[in-house]
Design a protein around this nucleic acid. Structure first.
Length: 502
RNA sequence: GGCACUGUGGCCGAGUGGAAAGGCAGAGGUCUGCAAAACCUUUUAUAGCGGUUCGAUUCCGCUCUGUGCCUCCA
């Protein structure tokens, strides 16, 4: 296996497919292309860390396929249609509600939180998707698809709303529930069983809406063959994913909380329209980020935003939060904790120190060019191990353990490194950078650990002069003064680490 | 009630039918004017009960525990 030849690595990627419950060999539909669709946010509030986890996880998938040389089309939607807070007819939609609270037009709310969404993800160093379609930008396409479903008798209109007919669909395709393994007759809904006009309207309570009639108070509405209304939640994803990726594409992703009913309904709609057996070959679901042991969720109030991550007046750089998130596998539950962040921060600096050291090794002149094989460290094997870890359903925690192993060798075994050829060290350096920066998407922090302090220019100059002064005093062996300055600086959060005096 | 998943040292978190990664903390050390940092070494773990097997943490069954979904949600 030639490490520089990515074909071998490309042919050995395994992905856990939620649809089958198994890890499967990844085989793209078109050899050189990968199509990914990920469900994006409803833009009516600042996204919280739980949302970020999912987008960071898929950012890694996107980065990895790109790194391997695939042409990736990553589509992630923006839900900017105000869906109802619950299925009751008199319910208010989330965007309207927010616009009432903030005194803005619904589309102002959408604009504000779309910008915020991009800003937050940018802070986390996630790459923008290839296409980011909005639900409001695809009303016509959604209406077309709904009409198609009506034509196929898989949907029916009632009082200006259109519902997906699950019983008819199941009779024809018998596949509702294939993703979530739910059986329709076993589903229940306590709230809807109480007198609700929606239940009366629907033929079956599991039927879901494709188009909803707009009440007078519903500001966001569009003309349709069934009167003024707005599209249902699931139809936008079926419409936009297939518009940009084709009737069947490679990977469909999202948070595990969307698996049912959202993804199940997306799938049903797609099968109903295109009459294929599937919508995406691989369904990936990221697990939840919990806080106090419970899922982070806007509606319950149990969530943390980026601004909330401050402890003892200390904030964490977003790249530390990213590293914290990546240290657990995307399918595992991860509980947010400050101790976890502190641990991640220390580990992060350990890796960064190693990368700095390695950089110096690689710039040194070396004469040897042969690959160095030792019983303790084999660079080629190490690179393979790293790729194998990612290839095994994106096992990033395992990859990180290999990175720590490498950093351990950088720190510990200068004899090993001295025996290595120049090409090996360059290779090592190159792949450390690939893994840490290109794939994990971590960033170097330009300032020291105290970077979070808002420091004015004058203050910075003052500190620099004080430190310079202290160095002079240390050279004069004026320990009392230099220790005092160190202590005073530590009170304002600036810690000094002395080297040996020359 | 149904479906899906989970349980690993003090904490966080991987993997595996054949001597259990890694990080943090703890302990010891190197370095240092001192301190810190950095680095090195190192102690401690597979929820319980059965079964399959030469051998189970891994596979199967049961019990207990926790989580998500069956309104809106990443």
């Amino acid at each position: 296996m030639n490490i520089e030849d990515k074909n071998y690595i490309r042919n050995h990627i395994k992905i856990y497919n939620s649809l089958t419950g198994k890890k499967e060999l990844f085989q793209p539909i078109n050899k050189k292309y990968v199509g990914i669709y990920v469900c994006g946010p409803t833009v009516y509030h600042d996204i919280h860390l739980g949302n970020c986890r999912t987008f960071i996880s898929f950012d890694l998938v996107f980065r990895y396929f790109k790194h391997l040389g695939y042409k990736v089309r990553y589509v992630r939607n923006i839900t900017d249609v105000g869906h109802l807070e619950n299925e009751r007819d008199d319910g208010e939609d989330k965007i309207s509600k927010k616009s009432r609270i903030e005194g803005l037009e619904p589309m102002e709310i959408v604009q504000k939180y779309t910008i915020s969404f991009h800003k937050i993800l940018n802070i986390f160093n996630t790459l923008p998707p290839s296409i980011e379609p909005t639900a409001t930008g695809h009303i016509i396409e959604q209406i077309d698809i709904i009409q198609e479903l009506i034509k196929k008798k898989l949907a029916y209109e009632k009082n200006g709303s259109v519902y997906f007919d699950i019983k008819k669909y199941n009779k024809k395709f018998s596949s509702y529930g294939k993703l979530s393994h739910n059986k329709i007759d076993k589903l229940f809904n306590q709230k809807l069983k109480n007198n609700s006009s929606v239940v009366v309207e629907k033929r079956c309570f599991q039927d879901f809406s494709l188009w909803k009639r707009a009440n007078d108070n519903h500001i966001m509405n569009w003309n349709s063959p069934w009167g003024k209304g707005f599209p249902g939640w699931h139809i936008e994803c079926t419409t936009m994913s297939t518009k940009y990726l084709g009737e069947i594409f490679d990977i469909h992703g999202g948070g595990i909380d969307l698996k049912f009913p959202h993804h199940e309904c997306e799938l049903a709609q797609a099968i109903g329209i295109y009459e294929n057996k599937n919508l995406a070959h691989y369904w990936m679901h990221t697990n939840m980020l919990t806080f106090n042991g419970k899922k982070m969720s806007k509606s319950t109030g149990n969530f943390l935003g980026l601004k909330d991550i401050i402890i003892y007046n200390k904030s964490f750089h977003p790249t530390i939060i990213r590293f914290f998130i990546l240290q657990s596998h995307y399918r595992s539950l991860l509980n947010f904790s400050y101790q976890g962040l502190i641990n991640a921060e220390k580990g992060y600096y350990r890796l960064m120190n190693a990368i700095e050291k390695l950089k110096h090794f690689s710039t040194k002149e070396k004469t040897k060019t042969n690959h160095y094989y030792s019983s303790t460290f084999n660079i080629i094997q190490w690179i393979k191990d790293c790729y194998n870890a990612i290839n095994d359903d994106f096992n990033i925690p395992l990859l990180i353990s290999f990175l720590f192993k490498a950093s351990h060798i950088v720190n510990n075994s200068s004899s090993v490194i001295n025996n290595m050829g120049c090409s090996d060290i360059n290779l090592w350096n190159k792949y450390m950078n690939h893994f840490i920066f290109d794939i994990l998407g971590l960033q170097t922090l330009s300032l020291e650990k105290n970077s979070s302090y808002e420091t004015s220019k004058k203050f910075k100059v003052l500190i620099e002069r004080l430190i310079k002064f202290r160095i002079e005093e240390r050279k004069r062996r004026n320990w009392i003064l230099s220790d005092r300055i160190r202590k005073e600086l530590s009170h304002v959060g600036i810690s000094l680490h002395d080297d040996k005096l020359c």
